[in-house]
Simulated assay, not measured.
Amino acid sequence: MQIPEFSPEQSVLLTHFLSEQKNALSLAQTQGYLFAVICAPEPLDVHQWLEQVCPGCDGQMDEQVLFAFMALYQQISEQVFGTRFSLPVSLQVNSKQQQYLDIQECQHWSQGFLLGAKDYIAKLLAAPLLSEEFKAALDTAHQSLGFFSLSQSDIAAIASEYELTEGQLCQQQYELMGEFAAGFAELIEVVAMNSQLYNDEGWN
């Protein structure tokens, strides 16, 4: 079945739907979560990730909502494996024509990413046959992509340590996140194969 391109209207539909569901992720959390799931060494089926995004909703949601979720999944997948992935959290412009980040959206994306990646990252970092160089590369990427899940006080402390304003630090981290996100799927594939926990058919 041909799934239409994810549209702005579907974005509004999912934002509204998720806001009305108990314990559901936000749209930005869902985007971060699906990015991590799509990059995983072993994919989840649609029922597994829908249950994480919106507990108890699978099988009960409107067909339009389900199609919107599938279109979002396909959009992220095509960016990860085809066109260059770009973070869905964009720079905003205020009334003075100054650019700024939507920190809450960044936070939500990082939270969703960490949720989707936690199991396979932990397994790969604990792999006894994986070299320290690969573990360090994976840990660095993981921390960068999850940066905005840190508390405001932690971000302020890091900014102070490096003699930056919080805005400067967040802007730098946002740019780094984009770089790590663009190559994250490839990194996971290389690390997974070198861990020897994974082969072409799945986890060993």
Results as ranks from 00 to 15, higher is better:
residue 116 G to Y: 11
residue 116 G to I: 09
residue 119 D to Q: 14
residue 123 K to V: 02
residue 124 L to T: 11
residue 126 A to K: 15
residue 126 A to T: 05
residue 130 L to Q: 12
residue 130 L to N: 13
residue 131 S to V: 04
residue 132 E to C: 03
residue 133 E to M: 05
residue 133 E to G: 07
residue 133 E to Q: 12
residue 134 F to R: 01
residue 134 F to D: 15
residue 135 K to W: 09
residue 135 K to N: 13
residue 135 K to M: 10
residue 136 A to Y: 12
residue 138 L to D: 12
residue 140 T to L: 10
residue 143 Q to C: 11
residue 143 Q to M: 12
residue 144 S to A: 10
residue 144 S to C: 14
residue 145 L to D: 14
residue 145 L to W: 09
residue 145 L to M: 13
residue 145 L to Q: 09
residue 146 G to M: 03
residue 146 G to K: 04
residue 147 F to S: 07
residue 148 F to V: 02
residue 149 S to Q: 15
residue 152 Q to L: 07
residue 152 Q to W: 09
residue 152 Q to T: 13
residue 152 Q to S: 14
residue 153 S to D: 15
residue 153 S to F: 10
residue 154 D to C: 01
residue 156 A to S: 14
residue 157 A to D: 15
residue 157 A to P: 06
residue 158 I to Y: 08
residue 159 A to D: 10
residue 160 S to A: 15
residue 160 S to P: 02
residue 161 E to D: 14
residue 162 Y to C: 00
residue 163 E to Q: 12
residue 163 E to R: 07
residue 164 L to G: 02
residue 164 L to I: 05
residue 164 L to P: 02
residue 164 L to H: 04
residue 165 T to M: 04
residue 166 E to W: 00
residue 169 L to E: 06
residue 169 L to W: 02
residue 170 C to H: 05
residue 170 C to W: 02
residue 170 C to M: 15
residue 171 Q to L: 14
residue 172 Q to N: 12
residue 173 Q to R: 09
residue 173 Q to L: 03
residue 174 Y to G: 01
residue 175 E to W: 00
residue 175 E to C: 00
residue 177 M to Q: 13
residue 178 G to H: 10
residue 179 E to T: 07
residue 179 E to F: 03
residue 179 E to K: 06
residue 179 E to S: 07
residue 180 F to N: 04
residue 184 F to W: 08
residue 184 F to G: 05
residue 186 E to A: 08
residue 186 E to R: 07
